[in-house]
Nucleic acid binder design. Structure first.
Lengths: 131, 131
DNA sequence: CTTAAAATACGAAATCATTCGTAGATTAAT
DNA sequence: ATTAATCTACGAATGATTTCGTATTTTAAG
């Protein structure tokens, strides 16, 4: 039952989405087993959350069979971007550059990511930049 | 009353911290007035939140006078970093580089921030440093 | 001194997110 | 065909956050 427009997932919902993104379409049992590799969660807890997520439109499910199969309704990147935008506003008041500095200053990045970052920066070089 | 070790601020608490960081030591009245420039909030709501924040150790207050004066207990950068670390884990599963790409891809950064970012990147990979 | 204004303290409602127990239905096994 | 296992549905308890009303205290005004 998809009522309103999809809201952002809560932390608990996001945990489940991570699993669905990684494993693809999954049953409650599969999601719950995966959850329990990280922490103890009751089966009906996972079920309830998936049902709520379905009602919010965060996942869709195939209920044509007895055992329902759930799928993330939105791709990981889109959801991450939406979460990031909100966080950027609330915690950094929109100062994206500050956030990047904080990240690069305190965290590792892969070689591949570094190259891609440099590409983006090159595109922003003051000389070729139209403001 | 400072009981446990300081937790991360909630969203509501963060809103107040932003004001304290910007305006410096402030009374409840001042904080509440500032809040109301953004949205309608009752005076006692702001008061209560500040009291809770004091009990959590997120702010300290001078209660030697009748009118208490509140101050953020931790600097903005430190709090931002802590919030960022948590968000990085929950939303990006620790992939800092992915997050940077997402940020640079979709948001403006100031010229000064861009330069500082380039510096960090150059330090990160000496081979790529421009002479 | 009495009253009004303004501040703090605190209880508690409202909302949301998370968790689980129980009930009922369906399938599989003996 | 009973029984056991497994699934979905759903009510409800719990805890955290946010909000505000009321009571009380303190200061300032008349």
């Amino acid at each position: 039952m998809h009522t309103s427009a999809h809201p952002l997932p809560t932390d608990g919902e996001l945990e489940i989405l991570q699993i669905l993104w990684e494993k693809g379409p999954s049953t409650v049992r599969e999601v719950n087993d995966e959850m329990n590799r990280i922490r103890a969660v009751g089966y009906t807890t996972t079920l309830k959350l998936l049902q709520i997520m379905d009602s919010k439109g965060l996942v869709s499910r195939d209920s044509s069979q007895k055992i329902h199969v759930y799928v993330a309704a939105f791709p990981q990147e889109q959801t991450r971007k939406a979460l990031l935008d909100r966080f950027l506003e609330t915690a950094f008041q929109g100062a994206a550059g500050e956030m990047v500095l904080q990240l690069l200053g305190g965290h590792q990045t892969t070689q591949d990511e570094l190259s891609r970052i440099r590409e983006l920066l090159a595109d922003r070089d003051p000389q070729n930049r139209e403001s």
